[in-house]
Amino acid sequence: MSMYTLLVNNNHYEVDVEPDTPLLWVLRDHIKLKGTKYGCGIAMCGACTVHIDGEAARSCSLPVSSLARKRITTIEGLSPDGDHPVQQAWVEEDVAQCGYCQGGQIMSAASFLKTNPMPSVDEIRMAMSGNICRCASYNRIEKAVVLAAQKLKQQ
């Protein structure tokens, strides 16, 4: 076991874990932030998506030892009051069915819109194809990303 200091959602956390422990399990089991989900453990489903220094990353495949001095953002920290334009768009489009994958979807979308603030529908479909939604809410995710882009533009 080793001690690591992590900066998560602007808070410092000290955790005593094995160096190969993925960020996903540090967040869920040690820091008790449950919004980041386990889906596959091999970076294929996107349920565990977080931001590292503002960029989307699959937390299930990031060992804690690689995160020194990185700024980690989870779905809980995306906005102070759950009012990030992507979150608002998700509620307005009634995207969620079971809801399990949606935190990861939102984190992917928020990061994507930072790099491409005015994406085409095809670009959205490609950018979001790393996130699986088993309820198949894909049509609404697509619409919500378009809506979120409009909201971000207005800000």
Partner: peptide, 8 residues
């Protein structure tokens, strides 16, 4: 549950 879901 929409708000609870989008805030994790």
């Amino acid at each position: 549950d929409a708000n609870n879901i989008v805030t994790g």
